[in-house]
Simulated scan of single mutants.
Amino acid sequence: MPDFRPTLVRVLWLRWITLSLHLGAAVLAIWGFGLVLPWPGLLLNAVALAVYGLATLVRLRLAPRFPVPAAEVGRQLAVDLVGHAVWLYFLGGATNPLTAWFLLPLAIAAASLPSRQVWLLTGLTVVAYSLLLTFYLPLPIPDAALAQAFYLHTLGMWLAFVGAALILAGLVARIGRQLREREAELAGAREAALRDQQLFGIALQAAGAAHRLGTPLATLTLLVDELRHEHAAQPTLKADLDLMAEQLAACRGELARLRADGDVPVPRPADQAVRELLDDWRLVRLQVQAELSLPPGAAPAVAWGFALRQALLNLLDNAADASPDWQGLQLDWAADRIVLAVEDAGPGFDGRVVERQGLGVGVALAVSAIERAGGRVAWLARPGGGTRVEVELPSREAR
């Protein structure tokens, strides 16, 4: 259910502004023009609105986590409309220039509430205004001030217009911005759900492929071991077979990590985790020229699961593809966060991130895994040419 709490807070602000306007107009009428006003009715109406507003504010403070429905905002606006109508009843009815103030609650309703509440409030406003054409107490204007009546009416219309314009520019514009932000959040949530659905499909395919690859890898391992034993006397062939055995062991290790993805990873110092990550990567990318840079001091603990490790390996692969002759890996940390930077000396990019890099699904998977671990990824232009990808992660919580 949508939460209309910010809109209700602005409705309460409008109520305080309306009460201040009522009080200011009454003081001006008494001290400026010597009018005798029906104070008991005006005070009772003002006190009722103020008490209702304070009770609503207290309720919002005592229950900050409960969402405010649209119907609650509609009731609050209806109270304001009735309160303003009662105030106008004591001060000239529809002849009072401040009848234009009726439009402010309607503007807030139209900007934020469902159409049902908007039309109900519109009907209430029309009924109240129509009744004020007949039922009201005339303004007690003395005979000496009758000549100034038209001027006073014009001045009141100007005050009502200026006040309404300022409030529309403030409250209603802010409500519109709030609605646009909510729409942007909903659009982002829809895009995230769609991306997660696509990634889930890819993950299912990867799990199926991992299951099917287990048997062929085991068979190839047995065959390579037999060939190594048969050709132990041939150094060149044996070296190639040893390399094949290492590659097969790396593949089996990755499959074992994939199958154990639900297990809780073991925390270890961040520098050790980075060295292990680099060693695993070098088993697959034999020709890489990665340069590792570590700061001095004791590194914080990290616990990287399979998905996060694969995301980091994917970024390393991208760096090697862009710059086969050199890749840089830098680790830094502060408080409970660590920063891992992957650099390359490739052609770089023009300031936009993933689309023009042409990295496709691999980067989408990597970014999703990093964000799910509580981190963020930033693509930067490397000084001197190339790309620098900074991955900021929590320390122990980065799984």
Rank of each mutant, 00 (worst) to 15 (best):
residue 273 A to N: 05
residue 295 P to F: 07
residue 305 G to L: 15
residue 341 A to I: 06
residue 344 D to H: 14
residue 287 Q to T: 02
residue 270 A to N: 10
residue 270 A to W: 05
residue 334 A to Y: 08
residue 324 P to K: 08
residue 294 L to R: 08
residue 281 W to P: 00
residue 294 L to K: 09
residue 312 L to V: 05
residue 327 Q to M: 09
residue 321 D to F: 03
residue 305 G to H: 10
residue 316 L to W: 04
residue 334 A to R: 15
residue 272 Q to N: 04
residue 285 R to D: 02
residue 318 N to V: 03
residue 306 F to A: 11
residue 347 P to G: 14
residue 284 V to A: 13
residue 287 Q to D: 06
residue 322 A to C: 12
residue 327 Q to H: 06
residue 273 A to M: 01
residue 327 Q to N: 08
residue 338 I to D: 07
residue 348 G to H: 14
residue 282 R to S: 07
residue 287 Q to Y: 08
residue 312 L to Q: 10
residue 290 A to K: 14
residue 298 A to M: 09
residue 300 P to G: 14
residue 287 Q to M: 11
residue 320 A to G: 05
residue 299 A to L: 08
residue 282 R to M: 11
residue 336 D to K: 13
residue 274 V to H: 13
residue 300 P to N: 11
residue 331 L to C: 11
residue 311 A to N: 01
residue 309 R to F: 00
residue 276 E to L: 12
residue 315 L to T: 00
residue 294 L to M: 06
residue 305 G to R: 13
residue 279 D to T: 06
residue 314 N to H: 14
residue 329 L to D: 08
residue 317 D to R: 15
residue 285 R to C: 03
residue 280 D to K: 04
residue 321 D to E: 06
residue 285 R to H: 05
residue 280 D to V: 03
residue 289 Q to N: 14
residue 339 V to C: 05
residue 345 A to G: 10
residue 320 A to S: 08
residue 282 R to A: 11
residue 272 Q to F: 07
residue 275 R to E: 03
residue 316 L to E: 06
residue 301 A to I: 07
residue 298 A to R: 12
residue 336 D to R: 15
residue 348 G to K: 12
residue 278 L to Q: 13
residue 335 A to W: 10
residue 305 G to K: 14
residue 295 P to V: 02
residue 292 L to H: 04
residue 270 A to I: 03
residue 317 D to M: 11
residue 319 A to Y: 02
residue 300 P to K: 07
residue 280 D to S: 09
residue 290 A to H: 07
residue 337 R to N: 13
residue 343 E to T: 13
residue 301 A to L: 15
residue 313 L to H: 13
residue 338 I to T: 14
residue 306 F to W: 14
residue 344 D to V: 10
residue 320 A to P: 08
residue 291 E to K: 01
residue 282 R to N: 01
residue 327 Q to P: 01
residue 274 V to K: 05
residue 347 P to S: 15
residue 322 A to H: 15
residue 344 D to Y: 13
residue 304 W to Y: 01
residue 345 A to K: 12
residue 279 D to G: 01
residue 333 W to K: 07
residue 283 L to S: 09
residue 341 A to K: 08
residue 277 L to F: 10
residue 337 R to P: 07
residue 288 V to S: 08
